[in-house]
Amino acid sequence: MAPRTFLVHGLLAGLIAGFAAFLVAYVVAEPQVNTAIALEEAGSAESGHPHDDATAEQSHSHGEEAEVSRDTQSTWGLATGTILLGAVLGGATALAAAFAVGRLGTLSARASTAVVVGVGFVATALVPFFKYPATPPAVGSGDTIGERTALYFGFWALSLVAAIGAVLLARRVLPQLGAYAAVLVGAAAYLVVVVVAGAALPTVNEVGDFPADTLWYFRRSSVMTLAATWAVLGFVLTGLVGRDADRAAERLRRQELAATL
């Protein structure tokens, strides 16, 4: 299959995954966001400085005076963001799968695509979340948002590079060690890199007196949204790639059969 075919499949799978992410986020995450915003606004009122510049800017970004209303943010805005992100994620994952097919030992196109999706989820979603988990409104200082964003994406990039290196290492030692041992070597190498990097990078702790249960529910819903995105993306993309691979194999079988007649 040509990379273009993978890309088309990836974009389609990404759009579907983005819509699924919107549904999950709207149902399980948005109530936690609303709770956090209410706490933020209540805290501003109790502080006696409701017109502080930073507080006012945050309040206006969520309330009725915002340029984009909260209702729009939680519906069309959320849907647009998740669907666009899903399409980008799907396209990138599909191109990675196109490169991986035929290069991961004897794995089929379907299995290779599933491996790429699994590695992508762990390296770019799960592991970065463990180090720098998502935070709701009212958590974190506006003065450090640039630093926190840089730390997150720096660790995200490092995790991705480490995952790619681990896959290449596993592929290199595959002939000598066999599939099982090669996977263990690659996984161990990845874990060493991300654990050392995670310990070396600074920890962000700006929770303050924010309610622990609300923070837990928000982060749990964030993980659920990430998992839903990657699960749907993997299911659809693997299914489309596997279908095309089966059709190609069937055409080849018929051509070989015709050649023997």
Rank of each mutant, 00 (worst) to 15 (best):
V101Q: 04
A97L: 01
A94P: 03
A98M: 03
G90L: 03
I37T: 10
G43E: 05
R70D: 10
E57K: 11
R70I: 07
G90T: 13
V28P: 02
L39T: 06
E46D: 09
A109G: 02
P31K: 05
P50Y: 10
Y26K: 13
A29M: 15
A42M: 03
L104I: 04
A45G: 09
H51P: 00
A100E: 10
E30G: 02
Y26V: 01
Q32T: 12
L104D: 02
E41I: 06
G86A: 04
W76M: 11
T72W: 13
Y26C: 03
S108F: 02
L95E: 08
G105E: 12
P50C: 09
I83Y: 07
T106Q: 09
V28D: 03
G102T: 00
E67L: 12
D71F: 09
T55P: 00
H60T: 13
V28W: 14
S108Q: 02
Q32S: 09
L85Y: 14
A45P: 05
A98E: 06
A38P: 04
L89V: 13
I37W: 11
T35A: 06
G43Y: 04
A98D: 07
D52E: 14
L89C: 09
L95P: 01
E64N: 07
V28R: 09
E65R: 13
V27W: 15
S69A: 08
A97D: 10
R103W: 05
A92L: 14
S74Y: 07
L89Q: 10
A111Y: 00
A94D: 01
A94Y: 06
L107I: 05
L95S: 07
G81C: 10
T80K: 13
I37A: 03
G63E: 08
A87G: 15
T82P: 01
Q32V: 02
E41A: 11
A56C: 08
S61F: 14
E30Q: 12
L39E: 05
A54R: 12
S74H: 15
A79L: 15
A54K: 11
T55V: 11
V88G: 14
H62Q: 05
L89K: 00
P50S: 13
A29C: 08
T72I: 13
G48E: 09
S61R: 14
S61K: 15
D53G: 08
T80W: 08
L104C: 04
S44R: 15
P31F: 02
D53I: 14
L107A: 08
I83K: 12
A56F: 03
F99K: 11
R103L: 06
N34P: 09
G63P: 10
A98L: 04
V27L: 15
T75E: 11
R103Q: 12
G77V: 08
L85V: 10
E40F: 13
E46C: 01
N34L: 10
L78V: 03
T35D: 01
V68Y: 06
E64M: 04
R103C: 05
Q58M: 13
L95M: 08
E65Y: 08
T106A: 11
T93E: 00
T72A: 15
E30V: 15
A66M: 04
A66I: 01
S59P: 02
E46T: 01
L89A: 12
S108K: 01
H51R: 07
L39R: 05
A98I: 00
P50A: 11
A111D: 09
D52A: 09
R103M: 05
S61L: 13
I83N: 12
S59E: 14
H60V: 10
T106K: 06
G86M: 03
A54E: 15
E67P: 00
T72R: 15
E65C: 04
H62G: 03
